[in-house]
Deep mutational scan, measured.
Amino acid sequence: MASQGTKRSYEQMETDGERQNATEIRASVGKMIDGIGRFYIQMCTELKLSDYEGRLIQNSLTIERMVLSAFDERRNKYLEEHPSAGKDPKKTGGPIYKRVDRKWMRELVLYDKEEIRRIWRQANNGDDATAGLTHMMIWHSNLNDTTYQRTRALVRTGMDPRMCSLMQGSTLPRRSGAAGAAVKGVGTMVMELIRMIKRGINDRNFWRGENGRKTRSAYERMCNILKGKFQTAAQRAMMDQVRESRNPGNAEIEDLIFLARSALILRGSVAHKSCLPACVYGPAVASGYDFEKEGYSLVGIDPFKLLQNSQVYSLIRPNENPAHKSQLVWMACNSAAFEDLRVLSFIRGTKVSPRGKLSTRGVQIASNENMDAMESSTLELRSRYWAIRTRSGGNTNQQRASAGQISVQPAFSVQRNLPFDKPTIMAAFTGNTEGRTSDMRAEIIRMMEGAKPEEMSFQGRGVFELSDERAANPIVPSFDMSNEGSYFFGDNAEEYDN
């Protein structure tokens, strides 16, 4: 993207840094990872977990959730003011799984939030270390993106479920800051804005008074975040219109849905970061690795190297396929839920299948599930090659597409044709070009129609051997075009429920 120079890199967003050079960025990201790792080690000690239990991804998720809940100030305040039966607002906890007599047992633990905050700050040299908290939120978000298709949420806001490739980060909490905003897809931002506008339509006082002023500035800020994701002048001009509207209503909703559809071809720039579970960072720190000293990046080879040398386990339900569970977590670790499966298959070195073909449910185990038949197995999170994460949407291309997802959002900077089903997408653009945004709409449609099938995206960008740390010898991959490109292809993934 041309304006790259004016933006802070995501590592800076990730670490609240002012302008830093590459070495400083690597050190501050490393410091953040160190903090998460030290916190995780301490929690495993508190909970008396064995090494194996500490490497269980379900335990990692519970521990991450506990610290996120302990620092969720708004919710904590709300819980104190609106006490609900049987919930102690000062405590947080969740299921911890232990191996007892050759069987997995679930144990519900409860801790004072104050105590968890103390352990977290102690692991982070006394700081609140917001960057580390956001990092864990993005890992949870990436896992949700890989596990669930947001059909219901899309339909509720009037969008087409086939636009799911635009929904990265749709389950990120509001408090995820600049680093969170960077990884949100165009569809996620559109959905947040539509929800806001709908509230304004239904509630006369939404934009009024002292609160209304705050609401208005939040609305304009979200519009600017979305505008910054678009790469064409016409899309940005249309966002200006939406932002400046005196009284946002149905016309703005129409414009936003139009823009979301246009992003299936004229893709937005959305950041991709490899955020790993805390149970990967903990053992690495415990083994003596100093992330701050060595430096770390979320968008280069580092996460690949770390996963190459990590042992992570997962509980497996009786009829689940461990290899499929591994694929789910591998995609989440690489922030690749909406990437082209052919690119992923090449990088991973084994075939990556669409969601609907995987015999696996989510990673988390519900409290009512029976533990008797639970097994555990090693997650295979290694890769054959590594590639640089991208934040450009890439230019655009036609490809055989599917009944489910009709476009992709690249996660890796790797040369390819970008699949999208042009006739299906263009069919949504018939007729409606009147109104105050008509010239911009016409211009956007013209650009979409001009998108050429034979153009290559990320020209000359390749993948790298894991021994090639400096990215000196790019390998331009070859793809098996007979395979499906979309992950949520004609899909039956479970729906995400809060």
Rank of each mutant, 00 (worst) to 15 (best):
M1Y: 10
G5W: 09
Y10P: 05
Y10D: 00
Q12D: 00
T15V: 13
R19M: 10
Q20S: 03
G37S: 04
T45D: 04
E46H: 12
S60H: 07
L68M: 07
E81Q: 05
G86H: 08
K87Q: 03
K90Q: 01
T92N: 04
G94Q: 10
R102E: 12
K103H: 09
W104S: 03
R106S: 01
Y111K: 05
K113T: 14
N125T: 06
D128H: 03
H135K: 05
M137Q: 07
H140W: 11
S141F: 13
T147V: 03
R150L: 06
L154Q: 03
V155R: 01
V155K: 00
D160I: 00
C164A: 15
P173Q: 14
A181Y: 12
V186M: 08
V190A: 13
M191P: 02
M191T: 15
F206S: 12
W207H: 10
W207A: 06
G209E: 07
E210Q: 04
G212F: 04
R216S: 02
E220F: 11
C223P: 12
N224D: 09
N224P: 10
L226T: 11
Q235C: 04
A237M: 02
D240T: 01
P248E: 10
N250S: 09
A251C: 10
E252L: 08
D255T: 11
A260G: 05
V270Y: 10
A284E: 09
K305W: 10
L307S: 11
Q311E: 06
Y313N: 08
S314H: 12
P318L: 14
P318V: 02
V329M: 04
A332W: 11
F338L: 14
L344T: 04
G349N: 10
T350I: 07
P354V: 04
S359K: 15
V363L: 00
V363I: 05
V363M: 08
I365D: 12
N370R: 01
M371L: 02
R400D: 12
A411Q: 07
P419G: 15
T430Y: 05
T437P: 12
G450T: 01
R461G: 09
G462R: 12
S467C: 03
M481G: 13
N483R: 14
N483F: 05
G485K: 02
G485M: 10
E494N: 08
Y496N: 14
Y496R: 15
N498Y: 06
